[in-house]
Simulated assay, not measured.
Amino acid sequence: CLDIGSGLGGTALYFATQRPDIFVHGVNHSGELYSLVAGRHVKQSREVRERLTFELAPEAGIPENELRYPPNSFDVIIIRESMMYLDYQDKPVLLQKASRLLRPGGRLIVVDYGFGKPDKEVNSLFREHLQEWGYFLMEPAEQRKLLQRYFEVEDTDATEHFVRFMDEGLANIEEHFGESALVRQNAGKDAEQLELLRSPLIGQMQAALPRLSVDAVDDAVEAAMAKLNMHFDAERADAEVCKADYEWARRTWMLERRAAAEGDLRWTFFVAVKKGVAES
């Protein structure tokens, strides 16, 4: 199984852990995401790691002269929410490469955003969002026609599932990043009590180490206080990052959820079967 545009590796990890009889290889063009995936990969069991690999590749895809697998290597290829990042002229190039790597009868699974309305009728805020994120959407009928150049295709409109998925995601965003999130609630809340500890700390240190001079005790307590202040500063910085992530994620997810609910966005599953004989 080949996962093209594997992102954080969630899809590849899911299949590798759920199906002990398959080998999964993920490719991605983002070095930053690749580093995060590597961290997730090493936490898996040895048995899973032996069947799960990741590769950093340009074009979010599979340049034929750079991937180590020959034609007809895979039974299944997955492209989940990656086609939408490709320019219109690049989409057929990727599909052609995927077709070469699939065995005859192999399946290409494409999950992708698409326009739910003609481009001119799409909400202006959603259109700006597409430009900001570099999405190049097509209507599902156009996507199907493109896939049919290389495959026999069936498709399912899963937009209702997408809306429910976004609702669940928004609830998780609120829980982990919202105002009630622990990282925001606890940020530096003990800092104001820190100065009250100075005198008790000095007294305890003088009692425990009476041979130390007053200056030595003061210096030791000051160093401890400074270290605690650094900790509280880090907590406050983490809280600010959490707040920024919350505002960004909530705004983005709500916009895409609204676009799907109002018909501007369609979330479609395509199952495409490779036709013909094995390629050489």
Results as ranks from 00 to 15, higher is better:
H29G: 12
V110D: 00
I79L: 10
F126D: 13
A223W: 05
L255A: 13
G105W: 04
I78F: 15
G39A: 09
I77K: 09
S124F: 14
A226T: 07
V271I: 09
N72E: 12
R107S: 03
R51I: 04
R100A: 08
G114K: 08
V271T: 13
T11Q: 02
G7R: 08
A237N: 03
E32H: 13
T268H: 05
N186S: 01
E121L: 13
T53A: 09
G178V: 00
G26E: 10
E152V: 10
L228Y: 03
P58D: 03
R127E: 14
A171G: 04
W267V: 11
P71T: 11
Q143L: 11
E195S: 10
V221E: 04
L146S: 03
E132Y: 11
E139W: 12
D190Y: 11
V37E: 11
G106I: 00
L52W: 05
R164M: 03
P63V: 00
Q143T: 15
F54Y: 05
F115M: 02
K120P: 01
F165D: 08
R251D: 15
L86G: 02
A261E: 13
I202V: 15
A158H: 03
L196C: 12
M225Q: 00
A239S: 02
A220H: 12
H176M: 00
K189R: 02
E160P: 06
G5Q: 03
Q193R: 14
E47P: 03
K43F: 02
T53G: 07
E55H: 09
M225R: 00
R257L: 14
R198V: 11
A141W: 07
G61R: 02
I202Q: 11
A249F: 14
L33K: 10
M225E: 00
M205I: 15
L2C: 04
V110G: 05
Y34Q: 14
Y135F: 10
G134T: 10
R198K: 05
D155L: 04
P210L: 12
I77D: 08
L56W: 07
S213Q: 12
L255M: 13
P92K: 10
D155R: 08
S73V: 06
R198Y: 12
A220F: 06
A38C: 05
D218W: 14
